[in-house]
């Protein structure tokens, strides 16, 4: 197996163009597991670990732009105020050791339906910056997940960054796992309110072949929510929960049953909505 170690981003793009079969490796917390289990035997690894630029984040044009190699540990320590739901999701990823290495770009690269960043990226309307020697392409995250562990990258493309709109209202993330830590989501849910545009964003994890949104629930809530008082009736909250559950297409597997996932999504949707609309929660 060849090991390509480009020193900068340009070299990385060139290497990827020259070796489209090379598998990028960033934190390695997914790639190394796959290699150990012999799930794949790629001709080459393309190490992104030396590329400084990928590890930075910045704020520009109403977005937080996270380099692909920003770790979950960094998101927790540096971005909890700007990206509260993403930081909540980051806290649920693996263990401290994993969070020190695991990156947002790697999470997207794997594109697992259980990737914990995904529901938040969906709910907040994030955009993936993909780049190749041919140029830069922006992919709305809703178009990025194309199937079970499949994403929209072309063989010569790498993820440069992900752009997340600056918080425009309350947002929440919740993840059910059957252990108190270090657990893959049985299902997860994210919701974000945009108080200016008066829109609702949602994201559902581990309850379908890919991360999902709940458009009917979003539309319903946008109409049912009292945006000025940021309040919602009990009935409307329950209906929102039911619509979120209906948007999922879960299966029975070792982690949980389909019926449980639907039930848990409804519960999480109602609870997270309450947290966003209760007065003290808004202040957070």
């Amino acid at each position: 197996m060849e090991f390509l170690a480009p020193a900068d981003w340009t070299e990385a793009l060139e290497a990827k163009a020259a070796h489209p079969g090379a598998v990028p490796i960033c934190g390695g917390t997914d790639v190394m597991v796959e290699l150990n289990f012999e799930l794949r035997r790629p001709p080459a690894l393309l190490d992104l670990g030396r590329i400084r630029a990928l590890k930075d984040w910045e704020v520009c044009d109403g977005h937080v732009r996270l380099g692909a190699a920003v770790t979950f540990a960094r998101i927790i320590s540096a971005l909890a105020d700007r990206l509260p739901a993403l930081a909540t999701a980051a806290r649920t990823v693996g263990s401290p050791q994993i969070r020190n290495r695991a990156t947002i770009g790697g999470n997207l690269g794997t594109a697992s339906p259980a990737g914990d960043a995904h529901p938040v990226l969906l709910a907040t309307g994030a955009v993936v910056e993909a780049e190749s020697v041919r140029g830069v392409r922006t992919i709305p995250v809703g178009d990025f997940f194309t199937g079970v562990k499949r994403n929209a990258l072309e063989p010569d493309e790498l993820i440069r960054a992900v752009r997340i709109p600056e918080t425009a209202g309350p947002q929440q993330f919740a993840k059910v796992g059957s252990r108190n830590a270090m657990v893959i989501a049985v299902c997860s849910f994210a919701v974000a309110l945009d108080l200016e545009r008066r829109t609702v964003g949602t994201g559902i994890g581990s309850a379908g072949p890919r991360p999902l949104t709940a458009p009917a629930a979003e539309d319903f809530l946008a109409g049912a929510l009292d945006w000025d008082g940021l309040a919602v009736s009990e009935d409307a909250a329950e209906r929102f929960g039911a619509l979120v559950a209906a948007a999922a297409s879960p299966i029975d597997d070792v982690r949980g049953t389909a019926a449980y996932r639907r039930r848990a999504l409804a519960v999480m949707a109602v609870r997270t909505l309450r947290w966003m609309t209760e007065k003290e929660a808004v202040a957070v």
């Binding site: 806290r91 649920t92 929440q172 993840k175 108190n180």
Partner: peptide
């Protein structure tokens, strides 16, 4: 720590 641990699934509900 509540049931669900760091999953933020309940604030006591």
């Amino acid at each position: 720590l509540l049931p669900g641990g760091y999953g933020n699934t309940t604030h006591g509900e």
